[in-house]
Nucleic acid binder design. Sequence first.
DNA 1: ATATGTGAAAGAGTTCACAGCC
DNA 2: GGCTGTGAACTCTTTCACATAT
Lengths: 231, 231
Amino acid sequence: MIRRIPQARERGIPDATVARLPLYLRALNGLAERGTATVSSEDLALAAGVNSAKLRKDLSHLGSYGTRGVGYDVQYLIYQISRELGLTQDWAVAIVGVGNLGRALANYGGFVSRGFRVAGLLDADPAVVGDHIAGLTVEHSDGLEAVIRKRGVSIVVIATPATAAQQVCDRVIAAGVTSILNFAPVVLTVPDGVDVRKVDLSIELQILAFHEQRKVTGGPMMAEDWAGEAG
Amino acid sequence: MIRRIPQARERGIPDATVARLPLYLRALNGLAERGTATVSSEDLALAAGVNSAKLRKDLSHLGSYGTRGVGYDVQYLIYQISRELGLTQDWAVAIVGVGNLGRALANYGGFVSRGFRVAGLLDADPAVVGDHIAGLTVEHSDGLEAVIRKRGVSIVVIATPATAAQQVCDRVIAAGVTSILNFAPVVLTVPDGVDVRKVDLSIELQILAFHEQRKVTGGPMMAEDWAGEAG
DNA sequence: ATATGTGAAAGAGTTCACAGCC
DNA sequence: GGCTGTGAACTCTTTCACATAT
């Protein structure tokens, strides 16, 4: 029988840790702006909204960047996390779909700063093409592949209607893109090796509604209890 | 001594399952629109982008709603999941901060449909107050508490600049709101019993950058690590 | 004295594989 | 035969608690 060896991923940083590194980075930048030179895991954890044991474990995956009895050097840790996340280089991002959401994204400060550069805004609607947004001119999505190749776009943000998302996805993958941030409420089908992250506004609301309901009623009936207990 | 209770797991639907229920609901609605009456866990899982074992385990937490040898009745399962998520009632949502993002959210179809109703748009900027967006008039955020009380708002979406977010948060909590969806890039401090979910656009990009960097510079050993969808 | 880094334990979440029912 | 529902195994994540370093 073929057994899959757990295979310690050589420089493998756990996904859960990677997802929190941007949080730490933001907290550290806040501290740096206020002139803080050194921070303890306790204080940094507080600023990032996690507990200190988790923070220390997370950072330990990057290396031993702290000093026992002292804490972490803020600037040094900012550099190390930035490097690990790949933010010391500039990533060209294209936003496809310039509706309300696409405009919001193009103007979103967090996109422009910190290693990301909006290198293209594309839309299929001729009424939108030519608009000037965040210092860029909206181009027709016919030129999607050309924009990706010429401007070295490596991350594409899909902010189109759901119906167009898969088609856009297929095209950008064919053009060589392997990292996609999808805002369209649809499950994208992609080949192995392509990374898709999804942001789904309505899903977040629905999760909140679930918890809100529990608070109000103490749970959606006990109707399910007899249904489930029979087995 | 303080005992840490692992979150209101009361009738025991795991968080990970709750987070996927909206996904299943969307897939089921798609099937229903195409007139499908019955679906197997295999097919539904495919449509939702998960594997079938996970889907069955998730659904088993709600009850025994399938039929062995047959599958799940689409309409019945839609109803059960909707009920579990609390979408059979109408939730009044207020959006605070009507910049680019707030406008996008107000116009976002997924917000208006499926049990959610935008009951108020508020902003502190007099230049924005009075604007008509998605059938609503933007009101001054001075009236935040009044809007929440009079219109029965139970979920607040914060789409303000980072600097205003905590203040808005404090005010809505004081007004009785216990469910908050935060788009501002800041960690909100809230008392126990208040539920905050965060959507952070730049964090998603940074996670993508991490994986993109690994593809470019990393060795061949990680090929399997990227496969599939994250989140 | 103080705070990191980390094995070990505990807890969540996922996948397997098959019993049970249609 | 076909498909669900689920205990068991496995993997991933979090937390604990303390040895270790300054």
